[in-house]
């Protein structure tokens, strides 16, 4: 498989701050790679180098085979960039912004207008197309920004925290758009602080912290790396807590932990089939449960154990939730 993005040993220092301290990154053509990391980890610096906005102090980066330092113009003609901050002109309308970009990309007036109309339609902005961007909602603005980075039909798209500051609904809209692009064959490099976002969109995830790659792999690989699954049971009656604890201890051979405040018993399990056995035993004992769940560690926990920092948003990655009443 060919690599759309290859970076080796990227270093960038700003004074005393080591924004990047030797980062390797590869993105195979046609895939989505998520770069995950806390604020200040170096994600944006990496994207800015790959998009030719910054020169690395050391290391090599290539996009579609073109060196970002030696052939920046070639790289720019192949990429689209959607920054952390909406980089469109707020005074102009959505359509005018898209036409301007088309004109800057050497399209004729007619082609630029047609392309603008096409993108507005695709991002469901046709009705708002002639309004100034500053009247747009956060989600609309981000969609237009995405559209703006697609005018030139890029092969590689950089999305630098595309959903930061968006509400869940708008975030979902952006995710839909990204999925559509991937279906069209665009290679995407996505930075995010949201573990859920990386989990949802990315084929592979690179965790960056303090300018270094802390981990790399598929989401489930990263999750497995950190630990197995846990089984959680919350009996309806608090008086059943001890009985539940006893049953789980017997079935798993490990001592469960009981959270009295939450009324929840948690135990690590390595055999997913155990779930049905637990259900039967609880049923036999006449215990009803409000919550019965088998879960992988959330990416949040992965993140925490890799970087020693909690991510901004915690995600509960519940695989199965059963309820016995």
């Amino acid at each position: 498989m060919t690599q759309a993005i290859e970076a080796e040993g990227l270093v960038k220092h700003f004074g005393q701050t080591k924004a990047l301290d030797g980062v390797d990154l590869t993105v195979p053509t046609g895939t989505v790679v998520g770069v995950l990391g806390p604020n200040g980890a170096g994600k944006t610096t990496a994207v800015r180098i790959l998009a030719t906005l910054l020169r690395p102090d050391a290391g090599i980066a290539k996009v579609c085979g073109f060196d970002v330092v030696r052939d920046p113009v070639a790289v720019r003609s192949l990429i689209g960039l959607t920054g952390q901050y909406a980089s469109v002109d707020e005074d102009l309308s959505g359509r005018e912004n898209l036409v301007l970009i088309g004109r800057l990309l050497e399209m004729s007036k007619g082609d630029a207008r047609a392309r603008a109309a096409e993108l507005l339609a695709r991002f469901e902005l046709t009705d708002a197309g002639d309004r100034a961007i500053k009247t747009y909602s956060g989600g609309m603005r981000r969609r237009l920004d995405l559209g703006a980075s697609l005018v030139g039909r890029p092969r590689v798209l950089f999305l630098d925290e595309p959903t930061t500051g968006l509400d869940p609904h708008a975030r979902n809209e952006v995710w839909q758009v990204v999925r559509g692009l991937v279906d069209d064959g665009v290679t995407v490099l996505l930075t995010t602080q949201y573990l859920e976002e990386a989990d949802q969109l990315a084929d592979r995830i690179t965790v960056i912290d303090h300018g270094l790659v802390a981990a790399e792999g598929r989401a489930d690989e990263l999750k497995r790396k950190v630990g197995g699954q846990t089984l959680q049971v919350r009996p309806t009656a608090e008086s059943d807590l001890l009985a539940v604890q006893r049953i789980l201890a017997e079935l798993t051979g490990t001592a469960p932990t009981t959270d009295l405040d939450a009324g929840m018993v948690t135990v690590p399990v390595d055999d997913p089939v155990l779930m049905s056995t637990v259900v039967r035993r609880l049923d036999t004992a006449g215990i009803t449960a409000d919550e019965l769940a088998l879960r992988l560690p959330s990416l949040d926990e992965v993140f925490l154990s890799l970087t020693g920092k909690s991510a901004q948003q915690s995600t509960v990655d519940t695989q199965k939730t059963g309820s016995l009443t």
Binding site: A74, R153, R155, D184, G185, V186
Partner: peptide, 24 residues
């Protein structure tokens, strides 16, 4: 759905001359 992103492969530009600069 028509593919929007890849229906025409982008041409690779490597240099920008003065005429282009003025147009931009």
């Amino acid at each position: 759905m028509t593919t929007i992103a890849l229906d025409a492969p982008p041409e690779v530009t490597r240099h920008i001359g003065p005429a282009r600069t003025m147009r931009h």
